[in-house]
Write a protein that binds this DNA or RNA. Structure first.
Length: 396
RNA sequence: GCAGGGGUGGUCGAGUGGCUAAUGGCACCGGGCUGUAAACCCGGCAGACUAACGUCUUACGUAGGUUCGAAUCCUACCCCCUGCA
């Protein structure tokens, strides 16, 4: 049955690597290319789950490290898993904690066995290994599980990047083994509980993460090692960590087309609206980024004419919406002047409205991208979007 | 009326002879944010000139005075607060 296939390519663009596809999990169907809002602690900050549904988000992220520390995966499991706990019926992808290996800097110590963290909440000592990460993500009930990796810092020498990617590969194999152990338990359990259940749809899928910094040979090596293990999807990690934008595009351009065409390709942590368009052109299917939500809380909104900071004094008397070309609920109703007023008074509605709009903008952009690919017009769309986005920012 | 305390830059509030164009908070202005230690962080904030080092002007209730030099000391006046009548 088709609905039991995790990923199906629907349309391949002829003038670029762009393609559309459909991901099917136990909780939702996800049209790709897709942008996944980040909900680290079981919440996409400032938004309700109802709002996410209204925005037609089909999948959001959660984070192993954060939920492990608080409230703890056992508690969430006892309450029926993360979907039920946070009342989110659609898909969830959980990051493995690998990014925290990178971002927590001095608070962590990397060993072969795993990573010792100093909790950023209370300073307590914590340990996450590939096995622990899989156990936590399994307890959370994630639809898409990420292998535990080391997000290589930038800059890294060729030698450092090679050592890092090889550690990630060893951890990827351990992640695969531990993940499969749980999957088999689950399958056996299902048979015991309900012998009539013939649903072959798996409950979760494991993605491997390619590292290798900006070195093509290392990226290729990383990919080959992951292919040997075998995953349901492949992520490009270790980008947008401080490298030049051209380096990011170059690395994505090199590695993305080498990933298996019949598996989802996920560029982790990216990015700006331009980044999304550019990466889709290079063959990427999935994205996540804190930018639309974090920047929203800081007053920066994305519009079809580039970004603007709605706190700026020049918007004090503007009756216009954030983006005149946006049809979202916020742009249909609220003015720049009002939203600026909310920011200047530290009113939480400011963050809510801007987060809503920014995600609406991102998700609408992805919708337009998918549509243009389906119509065979992606290259024209790409050129039109970028020129409008880049050239008329001053008009904001 | 008497006694005591006080008037500092948009605001609150330090400073009690030169190191003070004046600490700090707030407000305001601007920038940054890419698998969220982020409703956060950084910068600016008397005016004029300069690419810049910097220079000049005007500023600590008002008006005088002492001094090489005053937001800081003295005198008078104006205003505010507290207590007693």
């Amino acid at each position: 049955m088709n609905e039991n296939i995790f990923f199906q390519i629907q349309q391949q663009d002829h003038t670029s690597q762009a393609r559309t596809g459909l991901i099917t999990t136990a909780h939702s169907q996800i049209e790709t290319p897709v942008f996944m809002p980040v909900g680290t602690r079981g919440t996409v900050k400032a938004l309700t789950q109802e709002m996410l549904e209204t925005l037609d988000a089909r999948i959001i992220l959660g984070n192993t490290y954060h939920l492990f520390l608080r409230p703890g995966h056992e508690l969430i499991a006892a309450l029926g898993g993360l979907h039920k706990f946070m009342a989110w019926p659609r898909s969830l992808l959980t990051d493995s904690g690998g990014f925290q290996v990178f971002s927590l800097g001095a608070l962590r110590k990397i060993k072969e066995e795993g990573v010792e963290f100093r909790s950023h909440l209370d300073g307590s000592k914590q340990f996450i290994s590939p096995e622990v990460s899989m156990q936590v993500q399994h307890a959370l009930g994630s639809d898409i599980v990420m292998a535990f990796d080391e997000c290589t810092p930038y800059p890294a020498t060729h030698d450092e990047a090679k050592k890092s990617l090889e550690l990630t590969s060893r951890w990827a194999r351990r992640s695969r083994v531990e993940f499969d152990r749980f999957s088999q338990q689950l399958a056996v359990g299902h048979l015991a509980d309900d012998a009539t259940q013939t649903n072959s749809l798996r409950n979760s899928f494991l993605f491997g993460i390619i590292q290798g910094s900006v070195y093509h040979d290392l990226r290729q090596q990383s990919l080959e090692q992951l292919l040997e293990i075998g995953f349901e999807g492949y992520a490009i990690g270790g980008l947008s960590v401080g490298e030049e934008k051209a380096m990011m595009y170059d690395t994505a351009e090199f590695i993305a087309p080498l990933l298996p065409a019949d598996k989802p390709r996920y560029l982790m942590g990216v990015g700006t609206p331009e980044d999304l368009v550019e990466a889709v052109a290079r063959g990427v299917d999935m994205f996540d980024c804190v930018m639309p939500t974090r920047n929203a809380r800081n007053g920066q909104v994305f519009t079809s004419r580039g970004k603007l900071n709605v706190r700026n004094a020049k918007y004090a008397k503007e009756a216009r919406p954030l983006d005149e070309d946006c049809a979202c609920a916020v742009c249909r109703r609220y003015s720049r002047a009002y939203i600026r007023h909310l920011y200047l008074n530290d009113e939480m509605l400011a963050s809510i409205l801007c987060s809503y709009h920014n995600l609406a903008f991102y998700l609408d952009l992805m919708q337009q991208i998918r549509q243009s690919i389906a119509l065979g017009e992606f290259t024209a769309f790409r050129a039109g979007f970028l020129s409008k986005y880049k050239s008329v920012e001053a008009a904001n």
